[in-house]
Write a protein that binds this DNA or RNA. Structure first.
Lengths: 332, 332
DNA sequence: ATGAAAGCGCTAACAG
DNA sequence: CTGTTAGCGCTTTCAT
């Protein structure tokens, strides 16, 4: 900036004024400054500026998602990026991998870089960093999973209701022997989806013995194996509710292996790519990751702009998309 | 940091030494400092530090990909993140959307935040920012597409050879009427894939009249419509090479619409999710986005660690994965 | 309309 | 082994 000032023959503060579009600069002066900026290909140092700026903002956000390499997270990230970029804010994106240690390290890394706000997926375990965030006045929004602390803004899907809806859909198509395939119970969303499943089954008066519940399925392969075993058992399920997208993919493989894809009903939680091109096409409960991301980032910016109202708990709608696999009727 | 120093009863520089793990601090002093750090939940300000640090590093990288909401980009981003996080470096990820203006703005935003290095996908048009990057000594790696300037490190797939290989695969299965569906020609990779296609067809002595080339397909819908028209024509292609993943999805829809999925051969460039579960399963040329990301970030760190050897041009291997759709033989 | 001086939180250089 | 001083690039405050 000093160099720009020298080249334009003005004081350093005048350059600052021009760069930041502040008033009280003669048009001719501004033009000389811009010319110098172009000549030197000068770019302000936003970080140095934030050190002295009264609001202390770095124009930076931290985003912690399941994994950037996952369509659900990717859609969230894209929504956040779009809103942030429009306001001149850049986004640090980090993957969580459902690991509480990673969560803690990621938040520490964000703090060391003085992000203006945080959008976080929590790995579950209550972290003690959160109280400090409150004190520091850094806006935080938890997405996808409730942190168990109602003093934060949250943006989630109603996992329990959606899971109950999916299960009722299967029951309405005549099924009783319905298997649940779910992720590890420590993951809050997995537990909520299991609750919804159990409620639907219980409300319908179906004996628990008919509805095997397999949890702790951490990846596609585990889901594949688990369903394979169930389908080969003496009393195989006539319908399956797979409570997460990777699990759905494992379930699809197992159904294919055993040739049951046309006779066993399947509903998956989370949409899967190309679900409509499979045979049968896959019925799913679709979340709205774009809506989740957009809502979260809007909340952050509202807080940054001074909104001090009570924490908001947004529930983003899910949609049951009937494509065929979920409408296969139970054998008589 | 001043507060920590006060609480620990030491000078500010001693705190700095402890935080940065520098030598010449008594164990007992260090322990007192750490206690104060924990008590205040203190986090260094990396940005303030970089202002004064001799190497000037911000421990930050800029990554520009097609779109963070895209499996190919996501895999690249994940690989970059993993290597960066391991070294205490955070990553700004931004989406390009094949828009030269976005490219320019994204690079400017990275520069204003003083990233240590840049991993870029270029939107094509030669940008004049690049010369300044060179002068400034900021390491840059171009990925996915050659920038046309050999003075940068690059990490790409051999699009032309891979496209030729895919086309030859179709020819070897007896096809002559082969259609090419491709993206806009201004995108360098699209042009290269078209070249490979044309070479293979020409080498086989197939008349150009038999091999319709449709380019400028910017999205799934356009590809869907284009192939639909071809399949309904008097002399429909017996094989299709779709030169990008969204185009492949559009092609799959068109084949399904017209009931030709079992009689028309298809090879796609880029793997698509669940390709193995479709019927027939989809044969593809798979790129290695993880390998691209890993190689690019390693190049950046090598340059940051002082590697001043000539620019390297990495070509990451592609793989033809034969799953069925590409092995459908031409009708006699 | 413009500029000079101070200081944000930190690390480099040097002194003790 | 520890502390003091200066200054990174910028914005704030205040003077002109």
């Amino acid at each position: 900036m000093k160099q720009v000032a020298a080249l334009a023959g003005v004081g350093i503060k005048t350059v600052s004024r021009v760069i930041n579009d502040e008033p009280n600069v003669a048009a001719s002066t501004a033009e000389r400054v811009w010319a110098a900026v172009r000549a030197l290909d000068y770019h302000v140092d936003l970080q140095a500026g934030s050190l002295r700026r009264s609001d202390g903002r770095t124009r930076t956000l931290g985003l912690l998602v399941g994994s950037v390499d996952n369509p659900f997270s990717g859609a969230i990230q894209r929504a956040v990026e779009d809103a942030a970029t429009a306001r001149g804010v850049a986004v640090f994106a980090t993957s969580l991998d459902d690991d509480p240690d990673r969560e803690e390290r990621a938040v520490a890394a964000f703090l060391q870089r003085r992000v203006d706000g945080l959008i976080l997926t929590s790995a579950g375990r209550r972290q003690n960093y959160v109280t400090h965030l409150q004190d520091r006045g850094i806006p935080v929004v938890y997405i996808d999973r409730e942190p168990g602390d109602p003093s934060f803004d949250t943006v989630v899907s109603d996992n329990r209701t959606a899971a109950r809806q999916a299960t009722e859909h299967l029951i309405n198509h005549g099924h009783q022997r319905i298997a649940l395939l779910a992720d590890r119970r420590v993951i809050r969303t997995a537990a909520e989806r299991e609750q919804g499943f159990v409620e639907a089954v219980r409300n319908a008066g179906i004996p628990a013995a008919l509805t095997p519940v397999v949890t702790e399925l951490a990846d596609t392969e585990a889901a594949h194996r688990a369903l394979h075993v169930l389908l080969r058992s003496d009393h195989p399920p006539t319908a399956v509710f797979s409570a997460q997208n990777l699990i759905t993919i494992g379930a699809l493989h197992a159904l294919r292996d055993t040739g049951r894809q046309y006779s066993t009903a399947l509903i998956g939680f989370d949409d899967v790519p190309l679900a409509d091109l499979l045979e049968p096409a896959v019925t799913v409960i679709a979340q709205d990751p774009h809506g989740i991301g957009r809502t979260a980032v809007e909340r952050i910016f509202a807080r940054l702009e001074g909104d001090t109202t009570a924490p908001r708990h947004h529930v983003i709608a899910t949609t049951l998309i009937a494509r065929g696999s979920g409408e296969i009727r139970a054998p008589q």
